[in-house]
Lab assay of single mutants.
Amino acid sequence: MQRVNMIMAESPGLITICLLGYLLSAECTVFLDHENANKILNRPKRYNSGKLEEFVQGNLERECMEEKCSFEEAREVFENTERTTEFWKQYVDGDQCESNPCLNGGSCKDDINSYECWCPFGFEGKNCELDVTCNIKNGRCEQFCKNSADNKVVCSCTEGYRLAENQKSCEPAVPFPCGRVSVSQTSKLTRAETVFPDVDYVNSTEAETILDNITQSTQSFNDFTRVVGGEDAKPGQFPWQVVLNGKVDAFCGGSIVNEKWIVTAAHCVETGVKITVVAGEHNIEETEHTEQKRNVIRIIPHHNYNAAINKYNHDIALLELDEPLVLNSYVTPICIADKEYTNIFLKFGSGYVSGWGRVFHKGRSALVLQYLRVPLVDRATCLRSTKFTIYNNMFCAGFHEGGRDSCQGDSGGPHVTEVEGTSFLTGIISWGEECAMKGKYGIYTKVSRYVNWIKEKTKLT
């Protein structure tokens, strides 16, 4: 034993070699072989497995989906700052455009905790909710729209109204504003409101030439003092309507412009014939205590009207009353817009006519005020429907199939267009061939041609 100890002390290297040989010859039971080890760690190889990531292109799944990435790591994937920024906006807080917040056709661009709407022409605001041009839906104005110097929408209202708090709607500024039905039992019968379409306001006024200088022999019209197929109006439903009495009662109609003036057809009036105007009328054979009678003290036909040349060209006249009318729910003026808007309103496509005229061709006159909704007829169809001249200051309205029309005794009465609950004068009943005849239409004086003249002559002093 002493000898062994001496050998170990003198030859430590020998001992180490012996131990190493023993270990190498022993069977290893701690580690699995290569094949079995792979069965336990069965993990798919990654895209760049075996390579240094710093030297390969980034992978979106590896960089940002398996674990949260930084902007720089995302930049490695896209290799483009702009594309990385677009991805980053949604990656950080989701897609803010998912709810489609942009209105009126706006395009949404996502941002971090926010979004941006790219608005089409005519709109602005956070969600493109603000109209900035009158060309689109009248700028959301209830009545009139004008573009300011910086191309912003400025709404306005006709006389007797003021802008509401929203700067879009119009509200009454006087007790009985024009064009409004205020009798409670008839307010439910107000005709369907007309909503502004998209309009090209630059070209809204037709490029028409008034044929002022045409000389033409007097034409022989049949029954051209021209509501057939209409309905009984309720008291106060058309408070701007008046009836004219002269040699015979209810020979023509008219509309209240203001307390002192009536507008009617020029062919209705004769110099030297006494005319009485009755406002607030409903049943011409009954006294309903809503009527107001006034005498006409002055007749002003349009300066281009000449019955000797043509009885229905420039067929418009103004009547001055001896005493002002007292405005109330049964006696209310009709609204008159400017030339541009009167023309736009007419193009809405349908209007209402009213009167006490004959209820059928050569038949009896109506006792109760009649009204009828009539569609506008395109000019080409209008011209083809008659052998008589249709001037540019006239328009056609009615039904091709016949059966409904204005008729004798309705002449001078109103053709009105309702705009968001307020009625505007767009025409004056003038003439036609018979009444409600198939293929024939009622012919009306186009008020847009005469609004400046009306307003100039009827100013209240």
Rank of each mutant, 00 (worst) to 15 (best):
R3C: 11
V4Q: 11
M6N: 10
M6W: 14
M8G: 08
I15T: 04
T16K: 07
L19Y: 05
G21C: 08
G21N: 07
L23A: 04
C28Q: 03
V30C: 04
F31C: 09
H34T: 14
A37F: 04
N42S: 13
Y47L: 11
S49R: 06
N59E: 08
L60A: 14
E67V: 06
K68F: 06
S70I: 05
T81F: 07
E82A: 14
K89V: 06
S99D: 10
N104R: 05
N104Y: 05
S107L: 07
D110E: 11
D111Q: 12
D111F: 12
I112Q: 15
C117D: 02
C119V: 00
C119W: 00
P120H: 08
P120K: 06
K126T: 09
N127S: 11
C128V: 02
L130Q: 12
L130K: 12
N135H: 13
R140E: 15
R140C: 06
E142M: 09
N147T: 14
N147L: 09
S156T: 13
Y161D: 00
Y161I: 01
R162P: 00
R162F: 10
R162M: 11
K168F: 15
E171C: 04
A173K: 10
S182Y: 10
Q185H: 14
T186E: 14
S187F: 11
L189S: 14
A192F: 07
T194C: 04
D198L: 08
D200F: 10
Y201E: 11
S204L: 12
Q216L: 11
Q219Y: 06
E231P: 09
A233C: 04
K234W: 13
W240S: 00
Q241H: 11
F251E: 10
F251R: 04
G253W: 10
G253V: 12
G253L: 06
G253H: 08
S255P: 01
I256G: 00
V257A: 03
K260C: 03
I262Q: 01
T264F: 01
A266N: 02
E270C: 04
G280I: 02
E281I: 12
E281A: 10
H282Y: 11
N283E: 06
V296Q: 00
I300E: 04
P301Y: 09
P301C: 06
H303Y: 13
Y305A: 02
Y305H: 05
N306Y: 05
N310F: 04
N313P: 03
D315C: 01
D322Q: 03
L327Q: 03
N328I: 00
V331F: 00
V331L: 02
K339H: 09
E340Q: 13
I344G: 07
F348M: 11
F348W: 09
G357P: 09
F360I: 12
R364Q: 08
L367Q: 13
V368E: 13
L372W: 14
L372R: 14
V377M: 07
V377F: 03
D378V: 03
T381Q: 14
R384Y: 07
K387A: 11
C396Y: 01
E401K: 14
S406N: 15
C407G: 04
Q408P: 08
G409F: 12
S411F: 08
G412L: 13
G412S: 08
G413M: 14
G413F: 04
T417P: 00
T422Y: 04
S423A: 08
F424E: 02
I428C: 01
A436E: 14
M437Y: 14
K438V: 07
G442L: 08
G442A: 14
Y444G: 03
K446Y: 02
V447L: 10
S448F: 02
N452Y: 08
W453H: 01
K455S: 06
L460R: 12
T461Y: 15
